[in-house]
Nucleic acid binder design. Structure first.
Lengths: 228, 228
DNA sequence: TCTCATGATTAGGCAACCCTAATTCGGGAT
DNA sequence: ATCCCGAATTAGGGTTGCCTAATCATGAGA
């Protein structure tokens, strides 16, 4: 009990690695070093090297040639960064008039610079929001997080009427496009048509019919339960 | 016309050097490398090395064994950081309830992470304030700055009644102490007594008499004109 | 003019991170 | 049981920025 306690004073790039590994290992399944390299846009050897360092720091466990898994300490540090990132995003939208497509980049830098105090003051000013502007849940300060069950729009059946819960996309262009179609968290959409084999999905949203390619439809996550 | 334009993408430590040099060279008088080292708490050789790099970047001019002076480009970059720092301080006080003794440390990290966009949004939300919580003037976005004439409390004469304009101190303990005495920007104080040779100064502030040692008295800067 | 203290610079190293090139491992297909 | 491809790791380098120890310049005073 020491590595499990010290969340502070990690470098910026360590924080980025932890966030990436967290993102790549839902339910704690191991992440591959090449996936990490791809996500962070780094070379594979850079990741191998850093992985060794992180495992020496007790932040993850590494089985060579197999994969990487966060320890409790590592997961806690990762969730701390996720909380910061998402709270900053909400803050920028609510208090500084940022559009939802611009918050990610800004939060990506700020999350490494804010103090815990500042994060909690922002959370309080916002009334402790549960989700960020893209609908992603914000971990609590104690590290707990509740991932709501979601189904991609691309996997719904014709006739389903559902609420959009999350939009798992960060590219500003696409976010602006989705918003222009009314496809934002909270919106209710009905699947009008769906072509097989990853073909386009037609939905009714904001009173208009929209045709979505597979890529975009895959990114729009909806409540599992239908809306009456 | 290249080095004069590119303010972007300087590293954190380059930004810190420029700020330090700016602070050490009022009226463009050259700064010594050892003063820089002292202010940044670095070794002298580290500064020598960085100074060479900065002069290659066209941010300053270095006459070996003499001193260092910012170029226009360097001064612009420095003022950009000062603007960020001071605006962030005001923002933290106004919108997030920070006490004035805590803002410096937080701003010191944030100033390197915020985008120009964010800075200007904060400035707008604040109504484009002219000074930070310590009374230091905030440079305009175009790099202009007006330093009001100030006299340290320690140099006033008995009987002078003046307004406190700035408090040039960052140590939280001392800032809290000064505030507890009512010695904050905007306060009006009267010099009741002053011992010679750097002895204590007695002032009347917030309806009470306060005795200040030389160090503190030197840090409280007052309007040059007396208040009637 | 010469000496020497003080301040500045050069020499030589170290840690964090990144890269490309070369090598090695693991597991499916023959 | 082997071969082999792709994924992963090791080898070897580069940059940024910091440090200590050693050397050197400057200007004040003898």
């Amino acid at each position: 009990m020491h590595a499990t306690t010290a969340t502070e004073s990690l470098t910026r790039s360590v924080e980025d690695y932890l966030k990436a590994i967290y993102r790549l290992s839902p339910e704690g399944r191991p992440a591959s070093t090449s996936d990490i390299a791809h996500l962070l846009e780094l070379s594979a050897p850079s990741v191998s090297g850093m992985v060794k360092r992180l495992s020496e720091l007790g932040l993850l466990e590494h089985i060579p040639y197999k994969g990487v898994q966060l320890t409790d300490s590592g997961r806690r540090a990762a969730l701390r960064m996720v909380r910061r990132h998402r709270l900053i995003e909400v803050y920028l939208v609510q208090f500084l008039g940022y559009p939802w497509d611009a918050v990610h980049v800004e939060a990506e830098r700020l999350e490494h610079a804010v103090s815990d105090t500042l994060v909690e003051r922002m959370a309080a000013a916002l009334g402790h929001p549960a989700v960020d502007p893209h609908g992603d849940p914000i971990p609590e300060a104690d590290g707990s997080i509740r991932e709501p069950a979601c189904t991609p729009l691309s996997e719904l059946d014709v006739g389903d009427t559902v609420e959009i819960l999350r939009v798992d996309e960060r590219e500003p262009e696409r976010l602006r496009y989705l918003a222009s179609l009314g496809l934002i968290p909270g919106a209710v959409v009905r699947v009008e048509d769906r072509q097989p084999f990853g073909g386009p999905v037609t939905v009714e949203a904001a009173g208009a019919r929209q045709v979505l390619g597979q890529e975009l439809a895959h990114v729009v996550l909806c409540g599992a339960e239908g809306v009456r």
